[in-house]
């Protein structure tokens, strides 16, 4: 019998096929002493405070311009740690695979996970593989958890935020969400928008050493910057004033946003951060961010204000003002 090119239920059975898959694919790609113990848990030495996060990835399609589900999983977990000022060190990798997935596709995704983990000096130290019957999952779901060492003793928290603080976005918005949306086959758009999917450790962590002015950070993923800004306003019980003309958006994204009738302020980013910075340090932070390729379009987009508490106000390009609300329902293309 020929060697199978597809994932079979047996690959997740815990038997011979699983064992071979772990040995020949996973261990080869994620070679490190902690993982190669193949113990039930990874044992990690820590003296200091750590940050710990988890996230699941179910993106469809698995591959999109600028990334794939594997890159998304690694960078997403790295970014969640970086947002707390932690140096990402270890991640777990759990795969839920639909029976029948091409092994070559899975290998491509594993390669991608391995290369982005390596680039950020993160080790995959524990994992799990399950295979479910056809149609019980959509090709591949990934869960990753991550541990990072807190680099600074200053706690980054919404509680630190006060009036007059500046809001900074590290680059052009909405590129990930539109990249995936345009790739969906039902829309059949040949736009080739590149996702911004990227690890932010290189951009953000050095910044924390050069300035003490950063009070809080969050990566505006699902729901876009509008939703994250509202979360910040609500949690801090302060208002946020945003200047629309300062929000960096590429021409292509502007066009596709008009075409689909979807506001880019609500569209996901996967390689951007929103920073809340003390006013005196804002210009310096912008200068430092712009030196890095991932931060070259960084802009100050707003200011924290006392009122309206818990709300975000957008000043439009026409100098008029309106509420910028949280994302309420899934954005769908307009019908008329």
């Amino acid at each position: 019998m020929e060697k199978t090119t597809k994932i079979l239920l047996g690959h997740g059975s815990g038997g011979r096929l699983t064992h071979n898959f772990i040995q020949s694919t996973l261990l080869k790609k994620f070679d490190n002493p902690i993982l190669s113990e193949l113990a039930d848990s990874a044992v990690i030495d820590y003296q200091e405070k750590i940050a710990f996060t988890t996230d699941s990835f179910v993106v469809s399609p698995l591959f999109f311009p600028g990334g794939d589900i594997g890159k998304l999983a690694v960078t997403g977990t790295i970014n969640d740690l970086v947002m707390l000022g932690a140096l990402p060190e270890y991640i777990s990798l759990a795969l839920i695979i639909e029976e029948g997935l091409e092994i070559s596709i899975l290998e491509k995704i594993i390669d991608s996970i391995s290369s982005y983990a390596k680039a950020a000096a993160v080790k995959v130290v524990t994992g799990d593989t399950k295979v479910v019957e056809k149609l019980a999952a959509d090709k591949l779901f990934i869960n990753t958890s991550g541990i990072g060492r807190l680099l600074t003793s200053r706690k980054l928290s919404v509680k630190n935020i006060s009036c007059q603080d500046k809001i900074i976005i590290t680059g052009n918005i909405a590129e990930h969400g539109f990249s995936v949306l345009a790739k969906r086959k039902e829309l059949d758009l040949k736009l080739n928008i590149k996702s911004d999917c990227a690890s932010l450790n290189g951009l953000i962590l050095p910044l924390l050493e050069k300035t003490t002015g950063i009070k809080f950070m969050r990566d505006p993923t699902r729901g876009g910057i509008a939703t994250t800004l509202n979360e910040i306003a609500e949690a801090s019980n302060l208002g946020i004033f945003i200047d629309e003309k300062n929000i960096p958006v590429s021409k292509k994204i502007k066009a596709v946003s008009e075409l689909l009738g979807i506001d880019s302020l609500y569209v996901a980013n996967e390689g951007k951060a929103l920073l809340v910075v003390v006013p005196e340090e804002a210009d310096k932070v912008i200068r430092l961010l712009r030196r890095h390729p991932l931060g070259k379009n960084a802009e100050i987009i707003g200011t924290v204000v006392k009122k309206p508490a818990g709300r975000v106000i957008l000043r439009t390009v026409f100098n008029t003002e309106r509420i910028l609300d949280m994302l309420t329902s899934e954005p769908l293309p307009r019908i008329c």
Binding site: D263, T316, F318, T320, E321, R322, R334, C336
Partner: peptide, 14 residues
């Protein structure tokens, strides 16, 4: 769409 854009661009203030 008129309703939406009238509000989205804050034209009432004008």
């Amino acid at each position: 769409t008129h309703t939406q854009n009238f509000c989205r661009f804050g034209l009432k203030e004008l």
